[in-house]
Write a protein that binds this DNA or RNA. Structure first.
Length: 293
RNA sequence: GCUGGGGUAGUGAAGCGGUCAAACACAUCAGACUGUAAAUCUGCCGGCAUAUGCCUUCGGGGGUUCGAAUCCCUCCCCCAGCA
C-alpha cells in the first residue's frame, strides 16, 4: 500500500510579512522541518542584520539552509536548489513535512519549477566578455544568432546568454508534485509598520558591532555585506548618517526589497495568497485532512 | 533695521532671455529576471492624450520684451553677517 507522500509546504512573501513566525508555529504543530529559502541567512555569523530565525525558534523546529557558508564564500541558486531538493527528499523519508519558507524568489522557483541549469559555472569563462560594452555584447549576439534576453541592456544577462548560446527557459510549467504554495498577502501600511518595528529592534549596538566585524573581515564589497541593514549600518559607522537617518534609509531599502520580491512572486499563478491568519487556517486544514487519511 | 545670499517639480540641486515641463541625483510607481537575486537591469516620474499634441508651472503681484524660471519694480518668506 503506497503511503501518500508528504506535501512540500512553501510559504512565500515579502520580507517582514511574518513568514518565520507562521512557519515555526505550523512546523512545530505538524511535525515539520524548515528550509529557509533566503539568500542572506545562508551566511554564517550575519545574524542580526539578516533577521535570522532566533535561537529559540530554531530550538523549537529544525531549520535548514541557515549558516551554510561563510560570508566570504560564494553561494548561488544552483547550490540552493541542489541542497534544498536533497533536504526535501530527506525530510520526507523521515516521515516529516518539509516547509520551504523565504522571500528569495529565484531560489524558491528553482526548486518549485525544477530549473535546469547548465552544467558548468558560467562565471569561470567570462574574462574577455566582461571587458566588452553592452553594445558590443549585443552585436555579438546578433552576429552569432544568439537570442537576446528580454532585458538586453543588462550586461550580466547578455554574457549569460552568450555563454549558454541563448536564453535558458527550461522549467516546468507547473510546480513539482505534492506542493502547497501559499503567499502571505499584506498591505503597504501594515507591512511598513512591521518593518519599522523590526528595524527599531535590529538597530542597536549589536548590529553596529556585527557590521564592523564582518565588514572588516570580509570587505565591504563582499556579497554578504550587501544586505540592507549592513549597507546602512556602515554609513552610520562612518558618520554619514545619524541613527534616525540610518533607520529611515533602511526602511526605504526594506520596502524596495519587499516590492521587488512581490513583483517576482506575482508572476507565479500557483501561489495562493492569504492573510497571515487565513494562511494558517488554510495550511492547517490541508494538513489535518492529510493526517486523517 | 541694514548688508549679503537664497526661494525651481515629492526631496536635494542645475538652469540665469528663446532649442525648458525644466539637466542630474534620490524617493515614488511599474516591469524584467534560470549559477552574484537583499544582486543586476529597464520604463515612468506636472496634468490630459496612444502620439511627433495640448494645457498649467519655476515664492506672490506688477512690468520690460516678439519671447522670461532667467531682466526690472514691489511684496512675502528663509539663511548668514552687522546692528
Amino acid at each position: 500500500m503506497a503511503v501518500p507522500e508528504q506535501p512540500l509546504v512553501a510559504i512565500v512573501g515579502p520580507t517582514g510579512s511574518g513568514k518565520t513566525e507562521l512557519s515555526v508555529k505550523l512546523a512545530q504543530h505538524y511535525n515539520g522541518e524548515i528550509i529557509c529559502a533566503d539568500s542572506r541567512t545562508i551566511y554564517r555569523g550575519l545574524d542580526i542584520g539578516t533577521a535570522k530565525p532566533s535561537q529559540s525558534e530554531r530550538a523549537r523546529v529544525p531549520h535548514h539552509m541557515i549558516d551554510v557558508v561563510g560570508p566570504g564564500e560564494s553561494f548561488t541558486v544552483v547550490d540552493f536548489q541542489r541542497q534544498a531538493t536533497a533536504l526535501i527528499k530527506d525530510i520526507r523519508l523521515r516521515g516529516k513535512i518539509p516547509f520551504m519558507v523565504g522571500g528569495s524568489g529565484l531560489y524558491i522557483d528553482s526548486v518549485l519549477f525544477d530549473y535546469k541549469f547548465t552544467s558548468h559555472k558560467p562565471q569561470t569563462l567570462t574574462p574577455d566578455l566582461l571587458t566588452k560594452t553592452v553594445g558590443e555584447l549585443k552585436d555579438y549576439c546578433i552576429d552569432n544568432n544568439i537570442e537576446l534576453p528580454e532585458n538586453d541592456r543588462n550586461k550580466r544577462y547578455l554574457i549569460r546568454a552568450i555563454q549558454q548560446k541563448g536564453v535558458n527557459r527550461q522549467r516546468r510549467s507547473k510546480p513539482i508534485e505534492h506542493t502547497i504554495v501559499v503567499g502571505i498577502a499584506t498591505n503597504k501600511e501594515s507591512l511598513i509598520a512591521r518593518l519599522r518595528l523590526r528595524l527599531n529592534k535590529i538597530f542597536t549596538n549589536k548590529v553596529v558591532e556585527e557590521t564592523a566585524i564582518f565588514g572588516q573581515r570580509y570587505g565591504w564589497n563582499s556579497e554578504a555585506m550587501k544586505g540592507n541593514v549592513y549597507r546602512v549600518a556602515k554609513q552610520f559607522i562612518d558618520g554619514e548618517l545619524t541613527l534616525e537617518q540610518a533607520k529611515e534609509k533602511a526602511l526605504t531599502l526594506d520596502w524596495q526589497l519587499a516590492k521587488k520580491q512581490l513583483t517576482w512572486l506575482r508572476r507565479n499563478p500557483f501561489i495562493q495568497w492569504y492573510s497571515i491568519e487565513d494562511a494558517e487556517k488554510y495550511i492547517s486544514q490541508l494538513l489535518e485532512h492529510r493526517q486523517r487519511q
